[in-house]
Design a binder for these strands. Sequence first.
DNA 1: TTGACAGGTGACCGAATGGTCACCTATGAT
DNA 2: ATCATAGGTGACCATTCGGTCACCTGTCAA
Lengths: 118, 118
Amino acid sequence: MIWPMFNADQVFKALADPSRRFLLDELYQRDGRTLSELECGLKMTRFGVMKHLRILEDAGLVITRRSGREKLHFLNAVPIRQIHNRWIDKYTERQVSALLDLKSTLEDKTWSKTKKRA
Amino acid sequence: MIWPMFNADQVFKALADPSRRFLLDELYQRDGRTLSELECGLKMTRFGVMKHLRILEDAGLVITRRSGREKLHFLNAVPIRQIHNRWIDKYTERQVSALLDLKSTLEDKTWSKTKKRA
DNA sequence: TTGACAGGTGACCGAATGGTCACCTATGAT
DNA sequence: ATCATAGGTGACCATTCGGTCACCTGTCAA
């Protein structure tokens, strides 16, 4: 059987750049975007965006499909989950996720939904 | 209320280096190690390891406690879970984690527990 | 108290990274 | 056919990053 095997180093390196995380955020919000669409959100030339998308694709965080002369980009969450599983076992997961659920509940009550992301 | 707020950029940058991921692996296996203990596992001078631990600590991935002239290091999984939550919603989580559980089950049956990590 | 041991700082250097540009290929509309 | 549009490549440069070293601080034991 052929499972897509993700190179941990590539995944982490890919996630290390804020522009690439922004691209993942965009795809998380809506899949299937083209290079030109994704280019709009970043103050950067097309070539920079292309380079970033290439790195995300090589890492397996983004999957692409050609459609005519366009290239559609899709988010793949599997490598993210693998990162999670590396340092969080089933037991710890319950504690940590409960803590963060509580945190977001409190934030929604007291403040507005302000999310600070880099 | 004072919640420990993690800077996303620091966390991802911290995770981008294989030596630092190795240090987290070590602490995941057993908490409360000193610099000297952690130094042994890496082919690097003490100063390099110290720099890496500093970066992990600043990112909130490692928490430290002084004990006499020693400094004990502990793994903190919360930022890892936050990464997870950024791109994996509750619905996707079920699919992805089921997929990875199946994957590891199959691997345990067919092969031995070989883990390739960078 | 003095020496050995655990930890810490700032400067420094080679390697890797982010971003741009000149230039090229392929697809679709007219 | 041809021209605008979407995507792609390789070289190049400034900045950042990983690692080392000379040197310093603090703590425990004899």
